[in-house]
């Protein structure tokens, strides 16, 4: 019932008193933070903003779970304040980009209510189903191109590491377009081809752009293999990272994106830039991109 309500309400999002209240809460929360007296005039204001900034993705996780106080001090798991439901509810709005979610307070509020309910969910580093999207510039056959790398945390040995899960590169996608079904059905090797020593196999190679139509129904192009191939051949050459963001599917029935907001404001750093209610059963298909 509550889930239905969230689904319904998340569809009709309204601005209003909640955003005003939120700004007030933020001002009250951070107005009381300690600032050290320094000689440079504007440093004190900056310092309050830097305290408020979600400085690391790890801090995002700790704030999300309420495992640290508003000053960034880690809370002992034995302390009643650790993961305190009420404090978690009160503080979680600082993790939203208020330029987006200040105008969508309902969705933000229902998310907070849902994740802090009695069957509350927490985000953990090794909990899986959260990915990093690294947008980078490469040179492809001498020309600058943008490419997206999807990385995930994988347990190995005594710890863990970030590994490449998938690639999005428009040039690769162009090679494997979603073809027209009737066109696809025209391309096959008839079932008695073997008796003719596959004399008709040349058809596969006559039209390279549709060569994959001759593959098994289960065939899925592996873009990561293509990526490594092009790197090894020297056709793709890394230039630099342009931006990083995170996609989190770990929280039950929710997906959110966390992006870096570099601005002189108390609402800065790693913040939720996109939030969608997605029932668990619907996540399976989406996850195929992040973890093929």
């Amino acid at each position: 019932m509550r889930r239905q309500k969230i689904e319904d309400r998340s569809k009709k999002i309204r601005g209003g008193w909640f955003s005003t209240l939120l700004v007030l809460v933020l001002l009250l929360s951070f107005g009381t933070m300690p600032v050290s007296a320094q000689s440079i005039g504007d440093v004190q204001m900056d310092e309050a903003n830097l305290y408020a900034m979600t400085k690391q993705m790890g801090q995002f996780i700790r704030r999300f779970n309420y495992e640290e106080d508003q000053f960034g001090n880690k809370i002992n798991p034995k302390d009643p304040a650790y993961r305190n439901k009420q404090k978690r509810q009160q503080s979680m709005s600082i993790l939203f980009d208020q330029e987006t979610y200040g105008n969508q307070p309902d969705l933000q509020q229902y998310f907070i209510e849902d994740v802090t309910a009695n069957d509350s969910t927490y985000m953990t580093f090794l909990g899986g189903r959260w990915y990093s999207e690294v947008s980078a510039t490469f040179k492809y056959n001498g020309k600058e191109v943008n490419l997206i790398m999807i990385l995930g945390v994988e347990k190995e040995g005594l710890g863990s590491k970030w590994v490449l899960n998938n690639i999005y590169f428009s040039e690769f996608n162009k090679l494997f377009p979603t073809g027209d079904l009737t066109e696809k059905e025209k391309h096959f090797l008839h079932p008695m081809s073997h008796e003719l020593d596959f004399m008709n196999i040349y058809k596969i190679f006559k039209e390279p752009e549709v060569a994959e139509y001759y593959a098994s129904r289960s065939f899925e192009p592996n873009y990561l293999t293509l990526f490594f191939y092009e790197i090894k051949k020297g056709h793709l050459v890394f230039q630099h990272v342009d931006s990083v963001k995170f996609h989190v599917f770990q929280i039950k029935d929710w997906y959110f994106e966390v992006s870096w907001f570099n601005r002189n404001s108390s609402n800065a750093g790693w913040l939720i830039s996109n939030l969608i209610y997605i029932p668990e059963k619907d996540k399976k298909d989406l996850l195929k991109f992040y973890e093929p």
Binding site: V35, S36, Q38, S39, I40, V43, D46, E47, L50, Y51, K55, Q56, G58, Q59, R62, G72, K74, F125, E156, G157, L158, G159, S160, K161
Partner: peptide, 24 residues
């Protein structure tokens, strides 16, 4: 000038067992 802010991440282990953290 250094701001009076030092943020210390949680420590995570890398595959060889060494702990890695980040201080901001």
């Amino acid at each position: 000038e250094w701001y009076n802010i030092e943020y210390v991440s949680d420590l995570q282990r890398q595959p060889d067992g060494t702990y890695v953290g980040v201080i901001t």
